[in-house]
Design a protein around this nucleic acid. Structure first.
Lengths: 107, 107
DNA sequence: CTATCGTGCAACCGTCAGGTTGCCCATCGT
DNA sequence: ACGATGGGCAACCTGACGGTTGCACGATAG
């Protein structure tokens, strides 16, 4: 699987970042100062979080005039979701196999 | 959304833990020392990681004789996957709406 | 032109998480 | 009964992370 997956999970591990992600899902587009206004933290902190999200490929920021506009990229999210599905399926299968094994030993 | 979702992401944020998760998908069941043998870290470190995973509900350990056997629980994984799908869909929709908006302004 | 607003950058601080070592307890094989 | 093996617990170290403050810079409004 892609090495980026754990980066995505890491990016999503922080509640502030999780909020930014959900907020961008609603706004579609936002600037650091905008987002900072909705959080109990500094604009700089928000900027750092956005940088982290950008490094994970979840978001991309472009300078427009004197603002920096951030917009989301859903693709890494999908990748991570698929990873989760795959591992979850493996777990299910493995547990089923174990149960059957126990059954066989009981017979 | 469940408050546990970010706990799951947090648990999955570490590469060692990610390895443990993938490994449990294959083995179905394992003990700390077994797993520690496959990683460049101490058994204690593995134990800590397993505790973290257990607290996130991803894994459950039970003492059997002098071993502690850990087995996976796929349910929180599924929850997290669903969260990702939902947010991803929101992002898609929002981006589409923005594109349409730009189109409308161009007309 | 100047004041202001939105950013970026760098230094700094406190805390927590990953990891180690050392010790002690319980269990199993012999 | 006894030694080896698997685990838990606690203390400790270190680095990274979330957050802040201060400053400097480009773009914009008046």
């Amino acid at each position: 699987m892609d090495a980026r997956v754990d980066a995505v999970f890491g990016a999503l591990a922080d509640p502030s970042r999780l909020y930014l992600v959900e907020r961008l899902a609603v706004l579609g587009t936002a600037t650091p100062t905008e987002l900072a206004g909705e959080l109990p933290i500094t604009r700089q902190a928000v900027t750092k979080h956005l940088a982290t999200l950008e490094q994970a490929g979840l978001v991309s920021g472009t300078r427009e005039g004197r603002n920096t506009v951030y917009r989301p990229d859903p693709r890494p999210l999908r990748e991570a979701a698929r990873w989760l599905e795959v591992v979850g399926a493996q777990w299910d299968a493995r547990l089923a196999a174990l149960a059957q094994h126990v059954e066989r030993r009981r017979a």
